[in-house]
Design a binder for these strands. Structure first.
Length: 894
RNA sequence: GGGCGAAUAGCUCAGCUGGUUCAGAGCGCCUGCCUUACACGCAGGAAGUCGGGGGUUCGAAUCCCUCUUCGCCCACCA
């Protein structure tokens, strides 16, 4: 019959057509599955931090999500995959940079309104691109529900939450030292300021006493901030300095008098024991300043240049240039005591990696301790679990040491803070409002809205319910909250995951999900995180273009064990993704073979009709593959349930490639070609087992399995494998006898092939094979699989019993069956003797070791009886094999 | 500075509650095959003191201690 499929799998056209078709039949809609009384299952996904480009991390993350979603969907669960594509915050940063680059600008000076309009026009234009990319790798979310941060629905949720927290006094505003990015010109949360160890210096600077009677040495890593010093602090119990407390120092360079104060925060054992106090530029100093009512002098501009508060010759200098000048002036004045190397942690902006500047400013904060309490309790009670488990400790540790969340950002995009200030000085009312205000609700005077916007995560932490329509009481919300599983990247455990749990507890009175699966990170061969700036990334779409989405997905899944990172070599995409590419092609060709040998519906394997295949019609191989198939179902299902995606992929791979393609399909060829009877049975069994294989693989390789499945078994036009039932284990398929029997067939074929290869028997040359000492399993196997053996091992004649010849190749199978391949005088007797000697020696060692083990009274007494029995069996087998081979040696005259 | 993880074949990694998956897979490598599903394939093969050392146990890649090397998370000692 004609074969419509090309021998080489060509993913391109197939994949895009299939995706379109899936969308047409409403496959991904939770309300379109047509299931009843199904358990509820929700997976939400994180905001991609790049707007228009999918990177490998997202490829990984989304693939794993999709594998689990498809698995659950096939198991009949009502799946809602809520795709949270947040385009504010981080994403917008990228949009802005791309826009600027496109227009050759360094910044926009077009005013807030025009700017926001400009950015959002671009977002609207590029937004769908990431979705198209996710579609290209096969992600099956319900994209209609994709949310954008500035969507009306989401804005309502954000305001609702803000107002509620404000009214509960869990949101407050105040002057504190926050992390400031001088490049992004905004405040950052603690989590956004990534601490990184750097090699720095510790400068020891001398500050003279005002009366000229000596000096005090302070140690600092940041000399430039001394321009803003307003005191020097020492520990009140420090004998060296106690007498100096209350005295004045003359600050060099700026020539200002500052007091010496005593404060417990000072560690007398570090540096010189005296610390310069700069309340405007250091959190500790800020606290000291508050305790001693010291003035704060902000010597820097938002861009981290020296401000007008600094001496004139420093004004406008970059902070590092100012540092050099300050040090130089100290040195010139002989006030630089020494400089030491010093490793310390410095905060870096997580967007642009600029060194963060601690800066005193007025910001909005969320009081976190009350919110963390129930979120921590949920974990402690075991209601929330992490995969891998150890991530739970990180979660708990963060919750226990939680600090208030700085939520205001001095950016032009994102949600404006919904707070209005009355501009009438006599009123001065500050209102948080769910709706825009035009005038003061108290005095009716003019109002202005806070200029700041909210941290992008302030909308993201609400996604599990805001994405379902909250604060309205929607059907989605009742149905899908709480969900079950969150799959995401470990980098955003605190940014996002922990905060979602907190918001869920606070606003929905329940945790949003009970399981958090944290994926690994994609790294290059030097274990560096893949990133655009390093240029060590792989664009998943390149891989899709080259080998198809299924090849990408299989490779990703096969490589991601729980709790470990995934390593790819960006310089060798071909080798990196060869496993997936090869397997996709293998599957495709197995499918081609099966399809070209089916010419209509196959006979049912179970059920009532007259047509049903009877058990006695099954050959040993049929029973074997059915048993293997059942084992594969159990393995894959179990692995997916335990989030061991790599094991699921490996089990399905083994079943399809090793069992089905390498052995079963080879076995049934004569039957299919009509050279042997029973073609209809072979067709029925291969159709069923291949069908099961496709379904087991569908979550990992959706396109190719769908393409093959639709052509198989005369499916109806609207049927999709994605909605086919997940294969159930079938006790009736269990068949230990068939597994043993066909296992021996495999052993025998392999043994003959080995002998053939060993003695360079030409591939076209058939050989005779003689078997002796066979057990009952082997006899049964020969009876039903004689043809298989002779064909696969290229055997001209299979003789039971001795042949009387003595020159040839020997082997012995695990059941003790002796295999003899007579090779006449063509072979080197010496060589065979050596081979046998090696084999006997190997067995001899095993036997000796085993005897010693069993002679050990301790072992026999202490090991479980089952283990002891097993070891006895082993010994018996080895002894028998050794005996057979020793006899062979004697016959050969070795 | 505190907490955690990893080290297994040339490369990337599995090996889960100690004992029949116990030394594995894929890629790479060597040999032979264009056998009418597939050369992105088939058949065969070489290759590892399971990072070093010590311990527990009848038995350790697996559990404990220690050292070495990488990595991650957290951290206001200037």
């Amino acid at each position: 019959m004609s074969n419509p499929l090309a021998p080489q799998y060509n993913p391109g056209a197939i994949e895009s057509d299939l995706y379109r078709w899936w969308e047409q039949i409403g496959l991904f809609r939770a309300d379109g599955n047509g299931r009843e009384r199904a358990p509820i299952y929700v997976i939400v996904m994180p905001p991609p931090n790049v707007t228009a480009v999918l990177h490998m991390g997202h490829g990984l993350n989304n693939t794993i999500q999709d594998v689990l979603v498809r698995f659950e969907r096939m198991r009949g669960k009502d799946v809602l995959w809520l795709p949270g594509t947040d385009h504010a915050g981080i994403a917008t940063q990228n949009v802005v940079e791309r826009l600027l680059a496109k227009e050759g600008q360094t910044r926009f000076d077009i005013g807030r309104e025009a700017f926001v309009e400009r950015v959002w026009a671009h977002v609207r234009e590029t937004g769908p691109i990431i979705i198209d990319q996710l579609k290209a790798i096969g992600c099956s979310a319900d994209w209609r529900r994709t949310y954008f941060t500035l969507d009306d629905g989401l804005s309502r949720a954000v305001r609702e939450v803000f107002v509620r927290l404000y009214e509960k006094r869990l949101i407050y505003r105040g002057h504190y030292i926050i992390n400031w990015c001088p490049r992004c010109l905004t405040a950052l949360s603690n989590e956004e300021a990534e601490k990184e160890e750097v090699e720095g210096k510790l400068w020891h600077l001398r500050y003279p006493l005002a009366d000229g009677s000596g000096h005090v040495t302070v140690a600092t890593t940041r000399p430039e901030t001394m321009l803003g010093d307003t005191a020097v602090a020492v520990h009140p119990d420090d004998e060296r300095y106690r007498a100096l407390i209350g005295r004045q120092l003359r600050l060099p360079v700026v020539n200002r008098l500052v007091p010496i104060v005593g404060d417990e925060a000072v560690d007398a054992s570090f540096g010189s024991g005296a610390v310069k106090v700069t309340p405007a530029h250091d959190p500790t100093d800020f606290e000291i300043g508050k305790r001693h009512k010291l003035p704060s002098i902000d010597v820097m501009t938002p861009e981290a240049r020296m401000s007008l508060a600094a001496p004139e010759r420093f004004q406008g200098l970059d902070r590092y240039e100012a540092r050099r000048r300050v040090v130089a002036e100290f040195e010139a004045a002989g006030m630089l005591e020494k400089v030491e190397d010093h490793r310390h942690a410095v905060g870096h902006c997580y967007r642009c990696e600029t060194v963060v500047e601690p800066r005193l400013s007025e910001q909005w904060f969320v009081r976190m301790a009350p919110l963390a309490e129930p979120a921590l309790a949920a974990y402690r009670k075991g209601r929330l679990r992490f995969v891998p488990e150890r991530r739970g400790d990180e979660y708990a540790q963060w919750m226990e040491n939680i600090r208030d969340w700085c939520i205001s950002r001095q950016l032009w995009w994102g949600h404006r803070i919904p707070v209005w200030y009355c501009e009438d000085d006599r009123c001065g009312k500050v209102v948080a409002s769910r709706t825009d205000l035009a005038r003061c609700p108290d005095c009716g005077g003019p109002v202005r809205q806070d200029e700041d916007v909210l941290d992008t995560w302030f909308s993201s932490w609400l996604v599990p319910f805001s994405g379902l329509g909250w604060p309205d009481d929607t059907g989605d919300l009742r149905r899908f909250y709480p969900g079950n599983t969150l799959v995401t990247a470990p980098e955003i455990l605190f940014f996002w995951v922990a905060r979602m749990v907190m918001s869920g507890c606070e606003f929905m009175h329940d945790i949003p999900f009970d399981t958090v699966y944290l994926t690994g990170t994609v790294r290059d061969t030097q274990h560096r995180k893949m990133s655009k700036s390093l240029g060590n990334g792989i664009d998943p779409l390149d891989v899709v273009g080259l080998y198809g989405a299924d090849a990408l997905r299989y490779t990703i899944v096969a490589g991601s064990a729980v709790g470990t990172d995934v390593i790819f070599d960006p310089n060798d995409i071909e080798t990196s993704f060869a496993p997936g590419r090869n397997f996709a092609n293998k599957l495709w060709n197995a499918g081609r073979f099966v399809l070209s040998n089916l010419d209509g519906p196959t006979r049912p394997l179970a059920g009532q009709g007259v047509d049903v295949v009877q058990r006695r019609e099954l050959q040993l191989a049929d029973r074997w593959i059915l048993a293997r198939c059942d084992a594969a179902v159990v393995e894959v299902t179990d692995a997916l349930q335990r989030f061991r995606l790599n094991e699921a992929a490996a089990a399905a791979y083994r079943f399809v490639w090793s069992d089905l393609a390498d052995w079963y399909i080879e076995q049934i060829k004569p039957r299919l070609y009509g050279d042997q009877p029973g073609g209809d049975v072979a067709r029925a069994v291969v159709a069923q087992t291949f069908d099961v294989g496709l379904r087991l693989l569908h979550p990992v390789m959706p396109f190719i399995t769908e393409a093959l499945w639709r052509r198989l078994l005369g499916r109806l036009a609207h049927e999709s494998i994605a909605l086919a039932p997940w294969p159930a284990p079938d006790q009736r398929a269990a068949d230990a006898e068939a597994l043993r029997g066909f296992g021996l067939v495999q052993e025998l074929v392999t043994a003959v092939r080995q002998i053939r290869a060993e003695y360079d028997v030409a591939p076209s040359q058939a050989v005779r094979v003689a078997l002796s000492n066979l057990g009952p399993d082997m006899r049964g196997a020969i009876e039903s699989e004689r043809g298989t053996i002779t064909r696969l091992a290229k055997v001209s004649e299979l003789v039971l019993g001795e042949t009387g010849e003595r020159v040839g190749g020997h082997a012995v199978l695990t059941d003790g069956t002796a295999v003899f391949v007579p090779l006449g005088d063509a072979i080197d007797v010496r060589k065979e003797c050596d081979r046998l000697a090696d084999e006997v020696a190997r067995l001899g060692k095993l036997v000796a070791g085993q005897r010693a083990k069993l002679a050990n009274e301790q072992f026999v007494a202490k090991a479980p009886p089952i283990v002891v029995e097993r070891e006895r069996q082993k010994l018996a087998t080895w002894e028998e094999q050794e005996g057979v081979l020793t006899k062979k040696r004697e016959l050969l005259g070795c």
